[in-house]
């Protein structure tokens, strides 16, 4: 119990210290533009990694379509923010609302997908979530949504039939995605979202729900035999994970002036999975660190010019090998023993 608590405090402390340091640096004018430009994406990827960790690490089900939820949140959240431009003049409040809407839609889709998906296990579930991510991408690639004083106009495949009144605008234009997004995402909003996410995930893990979820992961049959409602707990974890991804999507999208559905493809899902695996399954602090490092790394390697992505891949392999080598594990355990007290906690 003690170590679990410690992990939690480290996560919160890391985020708060990082936020304070970055704010101080930028107030002092010591940050570069690259660094500042990466702050919001880092926040979004941290939330993505933590939320996927809930599905993969804590619930123990491999999901390969996490970017689909991000996409859902990105599109719905951004559309909502655009529609609210006049009625909610405060950018901060509008961003908050759009993240909430992104989370709600992420959660709803998570629930709908969860109904068939959570009946499956292991590889089957992985493949179905993969297909789900592709479906979401295809839908947004062919969806045309306009908005005027009479409300929303939706059509598939072509925008030809959408006739907008004066003052109306197209929100989603198929493959062209959403254009002319107001960039309202801020580092502070990202920070608050991470803190909220951490709060929700730790609260869940430490609660009765969390124990049931981990019991299902460790031994489904045993859990069922003592009366744990497997579907209910699995669904809870899955929906929460999807909702957080939706909020992260809304934050991410409004950091750029344009987004397309192709951004949230299979590669993005895999990237997020890499973040989770690198940080350690079930290890929230690890997810935070790996999301930060792997977002900065390709930028830090710009000096290698053409060999950049090659070096990136090599670094990734080395890090994976290094963190998994028995020598390192012993070293880490020794450090833990010195500082952390008892350590016979859950190790996956």
């Amino acid at each position: 119990m003690k170590r679990k608590n410690m992990n939690k405090y480290i996560s919160f402390a890391l985020i708060i210290v990082a936020y304070a340091v970055m704010m101080a640096l930028s107030a002092a004018g010591k940050t570069t533009r690259s660094m500042q430009g990466m702050l919001v994406p880092i926040c979004a990827y941290i939330v993505m990694a933590i939320s996927l960790n809930l599905t993969v690490g804590i619930l123990g089900e491999l999901s390969l379509g996490h970017a689909g939820f991000m996409s859902m949140g990105a599109f719905t959240g951004t559309c909502a923010a655009i529609m609210l431009t006049d009625s909610v003049p405060s950018a901060g409040l509008r961003l908050g609302l759009s993240m909430v809407i992104g989370a709600v839609f992420g959660g709803i889709v998570g629930f709908l997908i969860g109904i068939p998906v959570l009946r499956l296990k292991g590889d089957y579930l992985a493949i179905v979530t993969l297909a789900f991510g592709e479906i979401i991408k295809s839908i947004f690639n062919n969806l045309y949504l306009g908005f005027d004083k009479y409300g929303l106009h939706l059509q598939l495949l072509s925008e030809k039939g959408i006739k907008l009144e004066e003052g109306g605008r197209m929100l989603i234009q198929g493959a062209m995605g959403i254009s002319k997004i107001k960039k309202i995402s801020t580092f502070t909003a990202g920070f608050i979202l991470i803190i909220l996410t951490l709060f929700i995930v730790y609260h869940l893990v430490e609660s009765r729900y969390g124990r049931a979820i981990m019991a299902i992961r460790d031994n489904r049959i045993a859990a069922e035999s003592v009366g744990v409602d497997v579907t209910k707990y699995k669904m809870t974890a899955f929906v929460i994970s999807a909702a957080m991804a939706g909020a992260a999507g809304a934050l991410f999208a409004q950091n750029y002036s344009t987004i397309t559905a192709n951004k949230f493809d299979f590669n993005t899902s895999i990237l997020i999975l890499v973040l989770v695996v690198l940080g350690g399954l079930g290890n929230i602090t690890g997810s935070i660190i790996s999301a930060t490092l792997l977002t900065i790394l390709p930028e830090a390697l710009r000096g290698f010019a053409t060999y950049r992505m090659l070096v990136y891949a090599i670094v990734l392999i080395v890090v994976m090998l290094f963190t998994n080598a028995s020598g390192t594990k012993i070293l880490i355990d020794n450090i833990k023993a010195r500082f952390g007290g008892n350590k016979e906690e859950e190790e996956q």
Partner: peptide
């Protein structure tokens, strides 16, 4: 688009005075 914004910021740090924007459409939009 995301990487293009990063790249553009890196160029600003380098001291870019005139920009050739981006080569492809979506990145250039950002």
């Amino acid at each position: 688009a995301e990487k293009a914004v990063n790249a553009f910021n890196a160029l600003l740090d380098w001291g870019m005075q005139v920009s050739m924007s981006s080569v492809t459409s979506k990145p250039a939009e950002a």
